[in-house]
Structure formats: structure tokens, C-alpha cells
Amino acid sequence: SPPKPKTIVLPPNWKTARDPEGKIYYYHVITRQTQWDPPTWESPGDDAS
């Protein structure tokens, strides 16, 4: 059997959903933003550039 996916701790107000093909995506319940990649926690002042 395939390994279980890691449990991802989502930031507040993010949910997972499935598209009609069964792929998992993520959406923000307030902004209605959707994305394929797991959302990352906002870390103020932490600039990755």
C-alpha cells in the first residue's frame, strides 16, 4: 500500500478540497484564494530573497 501522506498543518482559515478529478487543492475560506501547493504560515519579517 502507498505510504500515507504527511499531515500538513494548515494556517488559520485554510481548508483542503478536491477538484472533480480528485486532486487535492487548498483554499482560504475568507479570501477564496485557491492554490495547488500547501499554504505556508506567514512569518512576518522573514524575507526569503
Rank of each mutant, 00 (worst) to 15 (best):
E21L: 04
D37V: 12
L10V: 07
V9F: 13
T34H: 11
S43F: 05
K6Q: 13
K23D: 04
L10D: 04
I8E: 10
W36N: 14
T34A: 06
G22H: 04
H28D: 07
P44W: 06
Y27P: 00
T7S: 14
W14I: 01
Y26T: 02
D47S: 13
V29M: 13
A17M: 11
P44C: 04
N13M: 13
L10H: 07
T7C: 11
P12G: 05
D37F: 02
T16V: 15
P39R: 00
T16D: 04
T34Q: 09
V9C: 13
W41F: 15
P38M: 11
P2N: 15
P5Q: 12
Q33H: 03
P3M: 15
D37G: 08
D19S: 10
E42D: 04
P20H: 08
W41M: 14
K15R: 14
S1A: 03
I24T: 07
I8S: 14
E42A: 09
K4S: 12
G22W: 07
P3S: 15
W14Q: 01
V9M: 15
P20T: 12
S43T: 11
S1N: 15
D19T: 14
K6R: 11
R32P: 02
P44F: 02
T34E: 05
Q35H: 10
Y25L: 05
P20F: 05
A17L: 08
S1V: 07
S43W: 07
N13I: 03
P5A: 14
T31G: 00
P2I: 15
G45R: 12
D47R: 09
E42Q: 06
P39S: 02
S49D: 02
P2A: 14
Y27L: 03
R18K: 10
K6F: 09
L10W: 01
W14F: 00
P11A: 05
A17D: 10
S43M: 10
Y26D: 03
P38E: 04
I30T: 12
Y26E: 00
T40E: 14
K23C: 05
Q33M: 03
V9E: 07
Q33E: 13
T34M: 15
S43K: 14
T7L: 07
S43H: 07
K23R: 12
K4M: 11
P12A: 14
R18I: 10
P5S: 15
E42F: 14
P38K: 09
H28A: 00
R32D: 11
T16L: 13
P12F: 05
Q33Y: 00
P2E: 07
P3F: 15
P5R: 12
D19G: 07
P20R: 12
W41P: 11
P2W: 06
E21F: 09
P39N: 05
K6S: 14
P38A: 09
T31H: 01
P39V: 00
R18T: 09
G45M: 10
P3N: 15
P44V: 07
V29W: 03
D37C: 10
P39I: 01
K4Q: 03
N13K: 06
V9G: 08
P44E: 10
N13L: 11
P44R: 11
D46C: 06
E21K: 14
S43A: 11
T7P: 05
W41I: 13
P39D: 01
Y25P: 01
Y26K: 02
Q33R: 06
L10R: 02
W41Y: 15
A17P: 02
P12S: 08
Y27I: 10
D19V: 05
E21P: 00
Y26M: 02
D46T: 06
T7W: 04
K4V: 03
V29F: 01
R18S: 03
Q33G: 01
A17E: 06
P12Y: 09
K6G: 13
P11L: 06
S49Q: 11
E21S: 13
K23E: 04
W41S: 15
T40M: 12
Y25A: 02
K4D: 00
R18M: 10
R32A: 06
R18G: 01
D46A: 13
D46K: 08
I8L: 15
K15H: 09
W14T: 00
W41E: 15
P11Y: 02
D46F: 05
G22R: 03
P11N: 05
Q35A: 08
K6M: 12
I8M: 15
D37H: 13
I24L: 14
W36H: 15
W36Y: 15
K15Y: 15
G22V: 01
G45D: 11
T34G: 05
G45S: 12
W41A: 13
P2D: 15
K23H: 02
V9Y: 05
S1T: 01
P12I: 04
P20A: 08
N13W: 09
D47V: 11
P20G: 11
V29L: 06
P2Q: 12
P5W: 02
Q35L: 05
V29E: 14
Y27E: 06
Y26P: 01
G45L: 13
Y25N: 00
G22C: 01
G22P: 00
V29I: 07
P5C: 05
D19P: 04
T31C: 00
I24K: 04
Y25G: 01
D46P: 10
